[in-house]
């Protein structure tokens, strides 16, 4: 089953005790803080989880795969994720040393 915002909101409601509506607002606030940081080109490092990085991609020549036509892809900025070793070990069920 896919984990969504709604599940996280329920968990916060149960474990921290805020009403559901308030929990949902707090989650949105949290997401907004993360998005604003990335928008300002600031990396977000969550120890034990991973690092959200903003990377600059330079302009390059690409091709429309449908038409085969050459085109120039403008430079752009993308978000990448670097998995922490703790998360990687948990996903691979490697025992905690």
């Amino acid at each position: 089953m896919t984990l969504t915002k709604a599940h996280i909101v329920d968990k916060i409601h149960e474990e921290v005790g805020f009403p559901t509506k308030r929990s949902a607002e707090i989650v949105e606030t949290l997401l907004e803080i993360i998005k604003s940081a990335l928008e300002a080109k600031e990396d977000v490092l969550i120890s034990g989880f991973g690092k959200f990085c903003v990377n600059e991609k330079s302009q390059r020549r690409g091709r429309n795969p449908a038409t085969g036509q050459d085109m120039i892809l403008d430079k752009r900025r993308v978000v990448t994720f670097r998995c922490s070793s703790v998360l990687r070990d948990k996903i691979n069920h490697v025992g905690i040393k």
Binding site: I8, I12, E15, V16, V27, L30, G48, F49
Partner: peptide, 9 residues
Amino acid sequence: KIVEIFFNS
């Protein structure tokens, strides 16, 4: 606690 729940989930 909320940040923990978010990333632990």
